[in-house]
Nucleic acid binder design. Structure first.
Length: 452
RNA sequence: GUGAAUGUAGCUCAAUUGGUUAGAGCGUCGGAUUGUGGUUCCGAAGGUCGCGGGUUCGACCCCCGUCUUUCACCCCA
């Protein structure tokens, strides 16, 4: 038989890895609750009609599609089969797909449950998503997202709260971060000013390379993308945008003065900056015009978080989408959300070794097994300890001491309880502290007190 | 999706530019040690050299294909 394997870009998680991952999920969940978000879940698979066309052409290609069950080939005509057009056939053969993110399924959820939901609705969702991407470090085909979104409120206070929440999350993890913001309206304003509304993506991609390749090469690239000389000249102050956040806003204000939408974006960003500056963020906060993520549906603020001490893609991203539910026939509901990439946070935490010690411990005390007669006594003790919420296990075999102590050692169990003939006669338990080797003869109550 | 590297024991890596029986450290398991782990000593298990084909008297080594992992684009968490 061939060696078993798992699909490309997927992973198994060991007990130690799961302990770490649960620490991540629990920390994020706790902060979500702290900010008033409530949890929902949606199915792993959605109808392809829900998913297709929501992530752009690129996204459609990266969707995992699920083959229909049953005799689906009979549905297709000979003509269609002969055409060998994968995309066309796919729509015949597959009507379901694995979710690509949590935002679109959430939009679907809001539309389907609109009569039960009262707005503003703040929900969070921690579930895996799947993308048929080519895997790399920090990029998987199955990974978890932790999303928090607010729908049904236009207030910019939501944006501010999401930033404060993000700061709190990464503070708790001990990860030094830079929170970057941009605004889609400013990007639209820039496009309007230079008269190249279709080239926004090309422009932001080119500007993003400034540090790497320098101003001249950036301009060269812009020319290659058929952007006029006049437009490039107008872009110069934006490409060279530098200084503090305030200075950047000032520059933009003069460049975008004639663009109504651009000025709206600046106004929004200014409000956010005012509030955030007063909040004493622990993360650095930076306006970055090259942020152009998710351009397909973001309409206002755009966020992204980078870890300062680890070379990895962004670990969090989000933004405002004014009309996501519109595509499902429910216009006028705006939302703003943020998505934490649990798997990348996992990689960052591993690399920096930032796990708190007590987050990884499992069993607190192990009872050594001396044999059948002693087992009874241990089971009774264990029951009392567990009643007090102390994580307790009994070694299942009367193996050699070395083996049993080695088990406790390997599992990093801090205490080992020994209850043999002598202890049972005295109604007590010998407790060994595994870190310093000290042993004490204790009553069950004294043992419980040890953990309080 | 485009271009490029990579793959030997559970892990990290060797094997004299094609030569016969593929090695080491760590880890695992057992023993030294019948109520005491982390140290030490001894021993054992574990490999169709990623998989499939080809060249050759002979392939871990060369060639082709394929899969995995990784890197740069693209995109993104």
């Amino acid at each position: 038989m061939a060696k078993p394997s798992i699909p490309k870009g997927t992973r198994d998680f060991s007990p130690v890895e799961m302990a770490k991952r649960n620490y991540i999920f629990n920390t994020i969940r706790e902060v979500f609750h702290l900010f008033g978000f409530q949890q929902i879940e949606t199915p792993a698979m959605e109808n392809l009609s829900t998913l297709m066309g929501k992530y752009g052409e690129e996204g459609d290609k990266l969707l995992f599609k699920i083959l229909n069950s049953g005799d689906f080939l009979s549905e297709a005509t000979d003509e269609e089969l002969a055409s060998r057009n994968t995309l066309k056939l796919a729509s015949k053969l597959c009507e379901k797909g694995l979710r690509y993110d949590l935002t679109v399924p959430f939009a679907r959820f809001v539309v389907m449950h609109r009569n039960e939901i009262s707005f503003p609705f703040k929900r969070y969702q921690i579930q895996p998503v799947w993308r048929a991407d080519r895997p790399q470090k920090g990029r998987y085909r199955e990974f978890y997202q932790c999303d928090a979104d607010v729908v049904g409120s236009d207030s910019l206070l939501n944006e501010v709260e999401l930033i404060l929440m993000t700061d709190e999350v990464f503070h708790r993890f001990g990860i030094r971060t830079c929170i970057k913001v941009n605004n889609r309206k400013i990007l639209s304003g820039i496009a309007e000013i230079i008269g190249e509304p279709d080239k926004i993506v090309d422009i932001t991609v080119a500007i993003d390379k400034l540090d790497k390749i320098g101003l001249e090469k950036v301009n060269e690239e812009l020319r290659e993308k058929n952007i006029s000389e006049k437009a490039i000249a107008l872009l110069q102050p934006i490409i060279l945008l530098q200084g503090t956040n305030r200075e950047k806003l000032q520059t933009l204000q003069s460049v975008l003065a004639s663009s109504e939408i651009g000025m709206k974006g600046i106004e929004e960003l200014t409000y956010i900056l005012d509030k955030v500056e007063n909040a004493n963020l622990r993360a650095t906060f930076e306006i970055d015009l090259t942020l152009a993520r998710g351009l397909n549906y973001y309409t206002g603020a755009i966020f992204e978080v980078k870890a300062l001490d680890v070379q990895i893609g962004s670990i969090t991203g989000g933004g405002r989408y004014d009309n996501l539910t519109g595509v499902f026939g429910m216009p006028g509901v705006s939302g703003v959300g943020i998505s934490y990439g649990a798997d990348r946070i996992f990689d960052v935490l591993n690399q920096l070794d930032l796990y708190p010690k007590d987050s990884l411990q499992t069993t607190q005390i192990l009872f050594v097994n001396f044999g059948k007669t002693e087992e009874e006594y241990c089971i009774a003790c264990a029951r009392q300890l567990r009643k007090e919420g102390i994580r307790t296990e009994i070694y299942p075999e009367a193996s050699k001491m070395k083996k049993q102590m080695g088990y406790a050692d390997g599992k990093q169990i801090p205490y080992v309880a020994l209850a043999g003939e002598n202890e049972i006669a005295a109604g007590k338990i010998t407790v060994k502290n595994m870190s310093n080797g000290e042993q004490k003869l204790l009553s069950i109550d004294e043992l419980i007190a040890l953990f309080k």
